[in-house]
Design a protein around this nucleic acid. Structure first.
Lengths: 348, 348
DNA sequence: TTTTATTACGCAAACGTTTGCATAAACTCG
DNA sequence: CGAGTTTATGCAAACGTTTGCGTAATAAAA
């Protein structure tokens, strides 16, 4: 066996028939006689023929490939999403071209360019947190390459996206704590620049007003998400007049820092001070001192929905449906999950 | 602007010159006059010309793409590896085509086939744990598509691979415990079918003999890696005649199960019973009760090395170097890392 | 038998590039 | 000023497919 894969042309020559006949035979085209069809099949098998997709891509103008650009592949949230995307793509016979931007706008731009060159049929993107200009995404529209954003959505008009609204989850979280009798609930929030911080704050406030309680702004302290910042935020909360008996933290990392700090201060976690967080980490289930509940953001689901939407768009495009002007805007509501360890694998 | 990307042909028509001239001009070929070169550049910019890679791929017979097939994308070990692979590929201008087998041999086969169709230049594979036949990989050799395996290596001859040897790390782990004064050290190992279990066992034995201590086989108990199995194993160890004062566990999951069980039994973790594990989980750093040390398996490094090797192979192949008969067999030695939480990000 | 369908296949263009070779024009030099 | 050299460009094939259209050969209908 030679090292170059067999081609249709070779088959056609060996069989002394035309390439078009071979091509059609391999596609079970009705206009090809049974005998030739069988001959072709047989020889193709013997030669281990495999269609050269790059040639087909060129011919058909599509690659059955979707590009995925994410900030950081090793983050648990994104790797869950990727897993979902790959699963969905696989089911519909698409392949995934993957790249990470490391939250660097310049790299992100390059990657979009590269994906365009590779002629991916569509793109799935979670925008880097430093990205401020969205021109590179606008360009894609001109070329009619569909893009679906998820989780981190750019501030653009007329885009498709899937995102998780933290507000409801936050309301649930705060209500959960209120129901358990807490009357002074602290929140360690993220930096004010993040959209997600706003949602959490809104949720907190709504939960309070819904329960006819006064909202004390000093109980929400921002934090830069580092261990130091978390400690500082904790100290601020603990020094507060209305010393909280429960804390909602921006994410699991912050929660762990806070819990650690509380433990150091001899505070009995979830007794003297109860914690609720947002689920970023897969194995919170395995740990001892963990938030008593978490707001789930459904990374797998987000990835899956985003991929589904993109593949639908591609399908319609391929069917020649006119430029459609409707935009998918899917909001997944976050949801509070109590952390009794018996329910496994909630993120999937 | 129209929605179809500009082509070289269009440029050539507008400028009334031949396509070859345009092509060369865009590549700064020396034989093209300065004026035409500039004209071409200008128009190309105006039209937002982007070379169609699929056409180039077809023409050049290579895709600057590497395929990556892994068992499970959402597992922390693999997502670190992926991240490394993408980083390395990006640096050398390659792109990553990604797929997961879910440890299913049949899917794995299909994926190999798909990658072959897509004409990836090379393949990076971590074999599914149920895969028993390696014919699909053998086929790749015939087509001269280089494959580099990592972490989970198939039992094949003449392959390139990168793997992590757990033996040294285990020796270090056991020696570490011995040095701390422990004389009865238990091990919760994985199922005997796993290659990795063997390495751990060997390491354990070597550490004992090296320190002129008697090896007590009853102190190594296998386990199916579930929570139940871990409990059972722990109980067996605790009931043993020479009740261990320290335990080495197969991985972090097992460690967490074991620690949880120990805590339930009111055993003071790392005081009455010290734990050492293997690093699978990224955030062991954030937790309170954790193994006092971990054997690091360097997922990022493994991914990086594997990608480097593959890209080197591709480079040589592209340079037309003859079929080389040497095979890369890289063994990364695992290494014991003490878990004082101040050193961050050790897996990267 | 002639006409009309039907069946089975081939021709050639098209997808967008790259590149070896040929060639026309301009320039150099003795 | 003609021969040789350089400079700048074009032609056409090739990469491996798919597919519209044309056309023989055969079969069915008139």
């Amino acid at each position: 066996m030679r090292n170059k894969p067999a081609t249709i042309k070779e088959i056609s020559q060996l069989l002394k028939i035309s390439v078009s006949t071979v091509s059609r035979a391999l596609h079970d085209h009705p206009s090809i006689g049974l005998t030739t069809r069988q001959k072709v099949r047989k020889l193709a098998d013997e030669l281990n023929y495999e269609p050269n997709q790059t040639a087909i891509f060129l011919q058909q103008g599509r690659t059955l490939t979707i590009g995925v650009i994410l900030p950081e592949l090793s983050e648990s949230f994104f790797s869950s999403a990727i897993s979902a995307i790959e699963d969905t793509a696989y089911k519909r016979n698409y392949t995934v071209l993957l790249a990470q931007s490391h939250d660097d706008e310049h790299i992100e731009k390059q990657l979009v360019e590269k994906m365009k060159n590779h002629r991916v049929d569509g793109l799935l993107v979670s925008v880097g947190k430093n990205t401020s200009s969205y021109q590179h995404f606008e360009n894609l529209k001109k070329y009619n390459i569909p893009v679906v954003f998820f989780d981190r959505i750019p501030a653009m008009q007329n885009i498709h996206y899937v995102a998780c609204n933290m507000e409801i989850g936050t309301i649930e979280a705060v209500s959960y704590l209120l129901k358990k009798g807490h009357r002074s609930i602290g929140m360690i929030n993220g930096p004010a620049t993040l959209f997600a911080s706003g949602e959490r704050k809104e949720g907190y406030i709504k939960a309070m007003t819904k329960n006819r309680l006064k909202f004390d702004p000093s109980l929400i302290v921002p934090c830069d998400l580092t261990e130091e910042g978390t400690k500082a935020a904790m100290n601020e909360l603990l020094a507060s007049k209305r010393k909280p008996t429960a804390v909602v933290t921006f994410n699991d990392y912050v929660a762990l820092f806070a819990i650690k700090h509380a433990t150091d201060l001899k505070i009995a976690v979830n007794k003297d001070l109860e914690f609720v967080s947002y689920a970023n980490l897969p194995l919170i289930n395995y740990m001892e001192s963990i938030p008593s509940a978490s707001v789930e953001q459904f990374p797998y689901l987000q990835g899956q929905k985003a991929a589904d939407i993109l593949l639908d768009l591609l399908w319609h495009k391929h069917q020649g449906v006119d430029e459609q002007t409707a935009y998918y805007k899917i909001i997944i509501e976050s949801q509070l999950i109590e952390n009794n360890r018996t329910d496994a694998g909630r993120s999937k």
